[in-house]
Design a binder for these strands. Structure first.
Lengths: 225, 225
DNA sequence: GGCAAAATGTATCAATTGTTACAAAATGAT
DNA sequence: ATCATTTTGTAACAATTGATACATTTTGCC
């Protein structure tokens, strides 16, 4: 019924052996649902009563806007879970309508059964808690960045945070493109600001190494913004 | 040691009887830590290795900016938990420095022990999952709003949300000044955009009454932005 | 109705950022 | 080492928004 070799590759079941996975699943009720191409898996607005994991094929999330048109949000391939962040909480309704891109099989575990699983296996519990926590932290960080108005402020904040109290120099682990996305700005705009900050002798960039030349100055950008 | 009548009023232990609570706690290791007024409970940046619940007194979360100034973020009174959203995930460090406002007692449960608790009691597990999920959903919504780049997009989103599916006309309950603050823009900029949207025949504003003349058009602003 | 205060409409100019395009530099694979 | 790909630097121009100022309208109150 379930191909456990695929299931254990899902972020949720990561680190759990196939054997253990089989044992776990034998202890709960679940369904494997099959969908033909373009079949609707769940309607947006429906209450989330099951955890879905894509076992084969792929599905897409689509949002219905105020005029009734559908807009594709993202593709979800096997073996990723579906709307795992909406299983709990106040608004546990699907934010999107999910449709099968092609023939697809989905594992459906009712919430109550999923709770049992979480209580049976510590690794699974940790995986799930980590995934929704990481998501919340990501959102929180992103919000913080958006609260700074200018790009220079965002950059100053980011660099000071990365450097911490002790260091004045560190390695960038992201490309400018990735940083630009984190800040919600375009890449050339970010590059321009980085250039300006260098000519103002606030920072120095060599390859991937950033050196903060004037922490005081960087700070004052955050105050007077 | 622990005043269970207070603990069960905490959102985490909500719906669990005092008796059950006592039994649960007897099965794990924990500490009750006492702090004098102005004692530091945790330094910002420290790894979160314990779940803290304020049992008596109150503490405050403060952020230390890069120039050394402290900014108060929020007060946490008994029996609320502390940084519950940062127990798991990639960045499980305290985002704030926590200081006692007055004499305070805090329950400290190591992460591993808290996991045990979650596996012992379904209600507790549900409470915790609900609290971090609700937080993630709140952040997600807030982010969605901030993610609109232009003022026009923000206005369009706001108006469509206010009107809902059915209505085309409604009363504004806020002044332009208040709306401008909600959107994070200046008042004249908002007025200009409202004027533009009127001359584009998207909306009509009479006194406090807003009429949506072209929902389709408002929608397309959100797509192509 | 008349009056003061608040809210709104509008204009001008500066500052910031986006857009697009292209060249230089760095990286990675063979 | 060489070549293709990715990343970065940079420039010119457009679009958006902020800042400031002032006139006009609306509101609340007497």
């Amino acid at each position: 019924m379930i191909d456990y070799s695929i299931l254990v590759k899902s972020p949720l079941f990561n680190g759990i052996s196939e054997e253990e996975c089989r044992t776990l699943c034998s202890k709960i009720h679940y369904q494997v649902r099959k969908f033909e191409k373009d079949a609707i898996v769940v309607q947006g607005g429906e209450e989330v009563t099951n955890l879905f994991v894509v076992l084969s094929g792929s599905v897409r999330g689509e949002m219905i806007d105020y005029s009734g048109k559908t807009v594709k949000i993202e593709d979800i391939e096997a073996p990723r879970p579906l709307a795992a962040a909406f299983l709990f909480g106040k608004e546990n309704k699907f934010p999107v309508t999910v449709t099968a891109n092609k023939k697809a099989e989905l594992l459906a575990i009712p919430v109550v059964e999923f709770l049992k699983l979480l209580q049976l296996n510590t690794r699974l519990l940790r995986n799930y808690l980590n995934s929704i926590s990481t998501r919340a932290q990501f959102l929180s960080q992103k919000l913080h960045f958006l609260s700074f108005k200018t790009i220079k402020e965002k950059v100053a904040h980011f660099l000071l945070q990365q450097a911490g109290d002790r260091f004045h120099s560190f390695e960038l682990k992201n490309t400018q493109q990735q940083l630009a996305e984190l800040f919600g700005v375009t890449r050339p705009s970010l590059a321009r600001v980085l250039g300006e900050m260098q000519s103002e002798n606030l920072i120095k960039i060599e390859k991937k190494t950033v050196t903060l030349l004037d922490k005081q100055g960087l700070n004052s950008l955050l105050q007077n913004g």
